[in-house]
């Protein structure tokens, strides 16, 4: 469904991604593993169209996204749950969710979708009328994921969903990620807590210095000596 071929990208004169090739097929859970600064977030930002690649190709169902703006890519069914939640803090949770379904296709059946999503995340239903900025970190992360689901995406991308959360809350968030996966949504996830993500991932890619250096099934990567040494500090 999503395919990156020899992608190069960066910020201004700094090239962060040297050569990234990966693919995500429908129904898969794919994870990208790598150290801070290896280019994981940059990869997701390039897929969303937030930065323009300087080389290589990104295709969604065979369609090149080079000319598309971020909203155009959302229209293709690609949605990101960004790092640090990035809610609209002075709006209610309900308004945040409604914005998740901003694109016309999703807006057409916004009420049904809201019901489906709230069934998936009953905790969010209790908070609908509160301002998003007043929620705790864990609740905000839940709302951010629910907002992403509102678009009824073909592919939902997570960028560091456990960032800055206490260990107990991290467990809850992973529970939600598992629920999203179980609902049949295709997922691409970047997460520093690689133990959990590699266990649920159908496939994983290891990114170092902006290059994919290794790929395999999640559990296999978890047993790989290089991964163990570099990312688990063993």
């Amino acid at each position: 469904m999503l395919r990156l071929e020899n992608l190069r990208a960066g910020y201004g004169p700094v090239t962060v991604l040297q050569d990234v090739s990966l693919e995500v097929n429908a129904g898969e859970v794919v994870t990208i593993v790598g150290g801070n600064g290896a280019g994981k977030t940059t990869t997701l930002r390039a897929i969303c169209g937030l930065i323009k690649p300087t080389g290589g190709r990104i295709t969604v169902d065979g369609k090149d996204t080079a000319r598309l703006s971020p909203p155009g890519i959302v229209d293709l069914g690609i949605t990101m749950v960004p790092e640090g939640r990035q809610l609209f803090p002075f709006m209610t949770v309900r308004e945040n969710l409604m914005l998740g379904a901003y694109k016309p296709a999703a807006r057409a059946r916004i009420e049904e979708r809201m019901e489906e999503v709230l069934t998936l995340f009953p905790r969010v239903r209790e908070r609908l009328t509160q301002l998003a900025g007043s929620l705790s970190g864990g609740e905000q992360q839940m709302v951010a994921i629910a907002r992403g689901m509102m678009a009824n995406p073909k592919l939902l991308m997570f960028d560091e969903p456990s960032l800055g959360l206490a260990p107990l809350i991290v467990k809850q968030v992973f529970g939600i990620v598992d629920r999203v996966v179980a609902s049949g949504t295709t997922v691409l996830i970047v997460e520093q807590n690689i133990v959990h993500t590699l266990q649920i991932a159908t496939r994983g890619y290891v990114l170092e210095n902006g290059k994919v250096v290794m790929s395999d099934t999640g559990p296999a990567l978890l047993k790989d000596p290089h991964v163990k040494r570099a990312y688990l500090g063993v």
């Binding site: 937030l50 703006s69 959302v74 803090p89 901003y102």
Partner: peptide, 23 residues
């Protein structure tokens, strides 16, 4: 209105708004 909400969304979080499909 949807447009009005989108306008407020841009004001509150310029970074997240395009991820919702807002131009």
């Amino acid at each position: 209105t949807h447009l009005g909400r989108a306008i407020r969304a841009v004001a509150q979080n310029r970074y997240a708004a395009p991820l919702m499909g807002i131009d």
